[in-house]
């Protein structure tokens, strides 16, 4: 079991870091540039650019948007790997041996996804760094302004909120695609279809639970 979990951590978490870092960096940069370009009124202080970058990255972009991307990457990997085991009777083989196949295949993925918040923390950090680089080297604001914005009105609960969301999304990312792979019927073509359906449902569940959690945790 331990080696299975390590294998899944490698596949699901480390295997996703590249794409997470890549999109976070550039989205962080673009958010900063967009904000800077739209804050043309000289009365509005420049540090609001850093503030906006921080808020959008920590509250929504890293937890939610990255999770939608992961629904595509991690989700389709999970659905197709379990689904192809279903169509080639490997799951039946586990059943015949008396191995609890659902447990054997899904549990390590859920445990591995407990490390997902670390990936999201990296996304936040890289995204903000991207914003800083784009803002400062693009000549939109000074480093001091950006850092001042980052520290403005900082509420630790917002970070807690972001990580509560992330954990829920991690669970969704491990289970919804597993369900679609495990209970699929048919052949290779259906594996592809199941991956697509799993992506759609994972995204829907993430979007809806994002709304519910935001209302519950931040709403009055």
């Amino acid at each position: 079991m331990k080696s299975l979990i390590l294998k899944e951590i490698d596949e699901l978490i480390f295997g996703s870091l590249g794409i997470i870092i890549f999109i976070s960096f550039f989205i962080g940069a673009v958010i900063t540039i967009q904000t800077a370009l739209n804050l043309t009124n000289p009365i509005i202080p420049k540090y609001l650019i850093g503030f906006t970058a921080r808020q959008s990255l920590i509250l929504e972009f890293s937890p939610t948007f990255v999770s939608i991307v992961m629904a595509g990457k991690v989700g389709s990997y999970i659905t197709s790997s379990i689904g192809s085991m279903r169509v080639t009777e490997q799951i039946d083989a586990l059943d015949v041996m008396g191995v609890n196949a659902l447990n054997y295949l899904v549990f390590p993925k859920i445990i591995a996804m407990l490390f997902y918040p670390f990936a999201i923390a990296i996304s936040m950090f890289v995204g903000i760094s991207g914003g800083w680089i784009a803002g400062v080297f693009g000549g939109f604001l000074t480093s001091a302004d950006f850092v001042e914005g980052l520290q403005l009105d900082f509420s630790p609960f917002q970070v807690t909120y972001a990580f509560i969301k992330t954990l829920v999304f991690a669970f969704v990312l491990a289970t919804v695609p597993s369900y679609h792979g495990f209970y699929m019927k048919g052949g290779a073509l259906e594996v592809g279809k199941a991956s697509t359906t799993a992506f759609v449902w994972t995204s829907v569940v993430i979007i809806v639970s994002n709304y519910i959690l935001t209302q519950l945790l931040l709403g009055q």
Binding site: M85, T88, E89, Q90, D92, A93, V96
Partner: peptide, 11 residues
């Protein structure tokens, strides 16, 4: 013991 139609080896 079971030998499946498509072998069903764990790939």
């Amino acid at each position: 013991g079971m030998v499946f139609q498509g072998s069903a080896l764990f790939d």
